[in-house]
Design a protein around this nucleic acid. Structure first.
Lengths: 235, 235
DNA sequence: TTCTGAGGTAGACGTTTGTCTACCCCAATT
DNA sequence: AATTGGGGTAGACAAACGTCTACCTCAGAA
């Protein structure tokens, strides 16, 4: 919810927080009036100009902060989840050798990452509301910025999956495509997660299933069906 | 692009078209001013009140019209695509009996439906921009309405898949979950389709792959992996 | 010590806004 | 032939708006 207590000028942070709050509760960013924002922040309207040229600049500042806060924690989590099943110092076991172990590991990372992501969403709802809202909003600048953020997330995910060997080998492009779809879906679902607290567990499960189906389907399409079947039928 | 030339009062239609246009090109619905809208429509500001209580009502009217226009054509298309591979009067062949034929038919329907959907998007960009924008917008009323629209689409899709036997048997819930994900993704992708004309073919292909992976993965998870493997390895 | 510039405020301006009341037109009922 | 009411306009109003210039404060560089 609150932005990092960094070296930002106080007024600047107040404005960013006010924007997050108003965006979540009433109007989208580009529908905010400068005076309304200043009122919410408890500042003089003119103070806005001291820090931002226009609302796009404000939006960019918020997006940048939020991105820095969530990006690396997510990566770390994937690593931790992967290690919790197979410690990093244990010998590498390929998918061919032990599909069942690898599948279990992948699904564990899947489950834990989804959980953490949604936890983060629940803790920072306003940030996600803003992100998702402006991803499809009226400002081309913010749209572009948010698409870049999602592309980065996707790239991170693809890199981690490759590095941690969470899937049988795919082409780089296919892997990235899947990561892109998952990222899009997770952001989309985060809106439902925020809005429907009573369905949260269900949404979590749906997300996991979606990811599992998508990745398994892609594996089958790329000729790794036999490995998967092996992993599944022994259960 | 243009709304149906129905029995709507002229002014009402002008206002709806103006809203579509402004929403797509400059500001989101809730950021529109009444006077700005009237100006664009070439009408007196007060005319708005003759037809709508507020902007939500306007939005609902647009959404309703658009939904009626696209919903049944999409269903018809699925049927046509299914028939083009296996005519309706030919004997039913189960997935068990001929997985390869059924898979080919499913992928054909997939390909053609995706294509038609994106064609429709390209012809009515403003409607989709409004829909996607307001699905995540500031108005809870419009958000709810659009989620309902998407749920209906998903239900249609699930019904058609079942009726046309486009997938091996799944539970009703699983089928619906997949349809939901696909619907969400297709709407999401339609924005990219509109904004990046040079990547349209690529987006089409990605969408097809996404759908294929998702459905296949789900089939595998539900114990139909063997059937799929059979269909794939003979190719 | 003086100076400077970043951060914040005050007041005023011309515009634009939402909404009100009143009036108009004309096709369809009665 | 008279009446009604849906669709549209005109003008006016206070309120809210973006933005300008001017002024204040105070920490840190000179």
């Amino acid at each position: 919810m609150s932005l990092s207590k960094s070296v930002l000028a106080q007024g600047k942070r107040l404005l960013m927080e006010a924007a997050l709050k108003l965006n979540a509760s009433t109007r989208s960013l580009n529908a905010l009036s400068l005076r309304e924002l200043a009122r919410e922040a408890g500042l003089n309207p003119n103070t806005f100009y001291r820090h931002f040229k226009d609302f796009d600049e404000l939006g960019l500042a918020i997006i940048e902060e939020m991105t820095q806060q969530i990006r690396s924690p997510l990566r770390e989590l994937r690593r931790k989840a992967a290690e919790s099943v197979v410690p990093a110092d244990s010998p590498v076991v390929t998918w061919q050798e032990n599909p069942r172990l690898n599948l279990a590991r992948a699904m564990q990372v899947n489950r834990e990452t989804v959980k953490l992501f949604f936890d983060y969403v629940a803790e920072n709802p306003n940030a996600f509301i803003l992100g998702i809202r402006e991803l499809h909003g009226a400002s081309p600048i913010l749209r572009r910025a948010l698409r870049q953020v999602m592309d980065d997330f996707s790239q991170d995910m693809a890199d981690d999956v490759r590095e941690l060997k969470l899937m049988p080998e795919l082409t780089q492009d296919s892997l990235y495509d899947i990561a892109e779809t998952i990222t899009r879906e997770m952001f989309q679902l985060s809106m439902e997660y925020i809005e429907q607290p009573e369905r949260r567990e269900q949404i979590c499960i749906k997300a996991e299933k979606m990811i599992t189906s998508l990745t398994m389907g892609s594996a089958v399409l790329h000729g790794h069906g036999a490995i998967l079947m092996g992993a599944l039928q022994t259960e």
